[in-house]
Simulated scan of single mutants.
Amino acid sequence: MPSVFRFLSALPLRLLHAIGALLGWVAFGASATYRRRFLENAARAGYRLREVRSAVGHAGRMVAEAPRLWLAPALPPCEVRGAECVERAWEAGRGIVFLTPHIGCFEMSVQEGARRWAPEHGPFTILYRPARQPWLARVMQTARNRPGIHAVPTTLQGVRQMLKALRAGRAVGLLPDQVPPQGQGLWSPFFGRDAYTMTLAARLVQQTGAAVILARCERLPSGRGYVLHLEDLPEPLAPTLDAAVRQINQAMEHLIRQSPGQYLWGYARYKQPRAEAHTVETGA
């Protein structure tokens, strides 16, 4: 399987996206559970299939482009819009928490940010959960620790490293619409229905005074590359945890509505959190 990944990483992005779009529609047609969840989640946000049908293909593109982003020696082209909000945070000497939902090429968000800012401001720290398959774990370990990126485990030690990075004025990246394990989140509205939402992003900001930057990496047609859109959180993060988590969910809704045709509507956003033996907290 690693040799297949190496082969795919050498293919043109345009071809990978074409293959991925086909795979996305195959998955949509083959899985009634996935299809139902996709349609229900989109409808909850006010969209019909005809308005977000491109998201079916983009889900497949996300999978197909991964070998290229993880293993190719050079990244595809990526234009950055809104970089001035990041520069203001660096000039103020603040750490930065980059937040992006499961939209577009979120893998490219951190890679482009690291390519642009890590040489001057230090590596971007991201949480990393190893894959269960040994071969995939090895591939992902290589990918997650590309130049300018520091991948840390989803453990208390990993969270401590994120806090350390922020207090040193560096950057971290999170997907706050990812369902955390039991005990690491709060139930908070997301498109009108309570969803179990991580508290980690809010806690990191509240404990370090870091700036919050919202990120959305859009795929361009025909494999031409990407556009990374960056913007400030509209208002300072609320001081109470419940209000801060709600505010972050609202910010994710805002980003998704900017490009609903590239959001992963099939993601099980409203599932019950899984139980884990060890709970990650940021107070230590």
Rank of each mutant, 00 (worst) to 15 (best):
G24L: 00
N41G: 11
T197Q: 02
R257I: 09
T197H: 00
V227M: 10
A131D: 15
E91M: 08
A251C: 14
A74F: 12
G113K: 00
Y270R: 06
P153K: 00
F5A: 15
I126P: 14
R146E: 12
A165S: 14
R257T: 12
G223H: 11
H102C: 00
L156W: 01
V86W: 05
G93P: 12
V159D: 02
L49W: 07
V139S: 08
F106H: 06
P77V: 04
R53F: 05
A92Q: 13
L8C: 11
T240L: 12
R81K: 09
L163Y: 07
A215V: 11
F124H: 12
I149D: 03
Y196I: 02
A55P: 08
R138Y: 05
A243H: 12
G209Y: 07
L11K: 12
P234Q: 03
C105N: 13
Q206N: 10
Y128M: 07
G209R: 09
V110C: 09
D177Q: 07
T199A: 04
R14V: 06
Y128L: 10
I248P: 03
M62T: 14
Q258I: 04
V56K: 01
T154W: 02
A92V: 06
A284W: 15
G183D: 01
I103F: 07
E84H: 06
P130T: 14
P234F: 09
Y267Q: 14
V245T: 08
L99W: 03
V152M: 01
E84Y: 04
A211Y: 14
R132M: 07
W25S: 01
A210V: 14
V212P: 06
G223K: 15
I103R: 06
E235D: 12
A151T: 03
T100W: 12
N145C: 13
E65N: 14
Q184T: 06
P260I: 02
R160G: 04
M198V: 05
L16Y: 02
D194Y: 01
P234E: 05
N145S: 13
F28P: 02
A43G: 14
R269E: 07
A59Y: 08
W117I: 06
P77Y: 01
Q206D: 04
A30R: 08
A55L: 06
G185E: 01
L237E: 04
E107I: 02
L99E: 00
R48N: 12
Q141V: 11
E40C: 10
L15I: 01
S222D: 13
L8D: 13
R14L: 04
H150T: 09
V4R: 05
R144K: 11
V97S: 00
S54A: 15
